[in-house]
Design a protein around this nucleic acid. Sequence first.
DNA 1: AAGCGGATCGTCT
DNA 2: GACGATCCGCTTG
Length: 194
Amino acid sequence: MTPRPKPLPRSFYLDSPEIVARNLLGKLITRTLNGERLTGRITEIEAYLGLNDPASHSFIGKTARNAVLFGPPGFSYVYFIYGMHYCLNFSCGPAGEPDGVLIRSLQPVEGLATMARLRGLSGPINPKLLCSGPGRLCQAMGITLAENNLDVTRAKSPLCVLDDGFRPASIKATPRIGISKAVDLPLRFVATLD
DNA sequence: AAGCGGATCGTCT
DNA sequence: GACGATCCGCTTG
């Protein structure tokens, strides 16, 4: 029997990004948009190791864009890339340590019809095409720069991460996608749900 | 089935 | 003024 979904506390995000990333697999992200709840379960995530990681946005030091990563853990870091897409991250590690995790894929749970509409898809819904990919999941959940720097530990936040007791069947680690530095580190984590 | 390039703009040099 | 933690559609084989 699955407990009622409960927001993950700030302490959850205090660990190293590798640990936080692994532990976030199988957790729920709920986006409240115009009074409707859009929910997905995290199936793919990457860890970015801040000042120690040339692939991290924070590697170059603090700027206006990456400032959230330098703040306390458990906040959303949203950025715009390639002139087309938004990507969703969560800050982790203690304040001052600019680590983060990039959400790469969700299994849609709630609000599939709205997700399909936001994605511009028509016809029969293929759940696989809704939230698989960092740009896609932001489009499906209506996440833009307006959703940067939200506290995802608060139940009433428009963006919140919940634990419903689900645990992934298995987890594998692979190199990260789409980066040009530190390409070999196994910091991408993919869950098998079941 | 896999590879190419276009779209499109915020962010930093 | 260049480029990117991407996606999609069109091409080719």
